[in-house]
Simulated scan of single mutants.
Amino acid sequence: MTPLKRLIDTRVRDLGITRGELARRLGYANVAKALRRTELLCETGAGPTHLMARLPAALDVDPLTVKQAMEATFEHLRQQHEQAVAEELAAWRAAFKPHAIILTERRIPSPISICAFAGGNRFIWIDLDASRPRATFIRQAILELAHRRAALGRSNIPFFGAPIGFIVNLTPDRAIRYDLDGRAVALLPEAYRPGLVTGFVRRRPIPTSLLYR
């Protein structure tokens, strides 16, 4: 529960009013619409300007109280985001296995929404056989890229365009970039991670893997 939601719930209870009455105090005739917008404001800190302007009078509190609750909500959301990022990174490092990423002319797939439903990054991700020597990783990546292009009957990677090279991620903290012929181009200080596509249903994130299934 964010600080703003806690403030609203507390004031509704203290004033002895219903959610419908709160909606009317906020100037809405449509109660469901008012509740949706208020919930969105509480969860994300985003909402119509007029809603924020009417909250102090609707809750019978001074504007400073609402402002402080909003600032605390932004801080709460920032901390949640940082924690989620840290947890995701820790899980990624723990599950890391050597792999390759095909580099293409487009870093952002197009159309991005269809790409998400089709499985997103599976088109540019190459699993490597880590039981074999590292010296074979380059050859593995080149052969797999050639196999995919032959299977597709075209040179372009779906949604991403023409390949321009690939990166072999050896560890979370070491990667090497190669051109299409397998010549080393650059040594990278960390593994290359392509962007992620996330869908939302009623503002709840849905992982790409679930969209694909």
Rank of each mutant, 00 (worst) to 15 (best):
R54Q: 10
R54N: 06
L55Y: 08
L55F: 04
L55E: 02
L55H: 07
P56E: 03
P56G: 08
P56A: 04
A57T: 10
A57P: 06
A57V: 13
A58D: 14
L59H: 05
D60A: 05
D60T: 06
V61G: 10
V61H: 05
D62M: 02
L64Q: 11
L64W: 14
L64V: 15
T65L: 09
V66N: 11
V66Y: 09
K67E: 02
K67Y: 06
Q68L: 15
Q68W: 09
A69Y: 13
A69M: 11
M70H: 14
E71Q: 14
E71F: 12
A72E: 09
A72L: 07
A72K: 03
T73M: 06
T73L: 10
T73Y: 13
T73N: 12
F74T: 06
F74Q: 05
E75T: 05
E75Q: 04
E75R: 10
H76S: 10
H76T: 15
H76L: 06
L77A: 08
L77K: 03
L77S: 05
Q79R: 06
Q79T: 05
Q80H: 08
H81W: 09
E82T: 10
Q83F: 12
A84K: 10
A84C: 12
V85K: 05
V85Y: 15
A86M: 09
A86Q: 13
A86S: 15
E88M: 13
L89R: 12
L89V: 04
A90T: 05
A91W: 04
A91P: 02
R93H: 08
R93V: 13
R93Y: 14
R93C: 14
R93L: 10
A94I: 02
A94D: 08
A94F: 14
A95D: 09
A95T: 04
F96L: 07
F96N: 07
F96D: 04
K97S: 09
K97H: 15
K97N: 02
K97D: 02
P98Q: 05
P98T: 10
P98E: 03
H99D: 01
I101S: 01
I101T: 01
I101Y: 00
I101K: 00
I101N: 00
I102Y: 00
I102H: 00
I102A: 01
I102R: 00
I102D: 00
I102P: 00
L103S: 01
L103Q: 01
L103P: 00
T104N: 05
E105M: 03
E105N: 03
E105Q: 07
R106M: 15
R106P: 05
R106K: 04
R106W: 07
R107E: 08
R107V: 13
R107L: 13
I108G: 12
I108H: 07
I108Y: 11
S110N: 09
S110T: 06
P111D: 15
P111K: 07
P111V: 05
P111A: 13
C115R: 01
A116V: 09
A116E: 02
A116W: 01
F117T: 11
F117H: 14
F117A: 12
F117R: 08
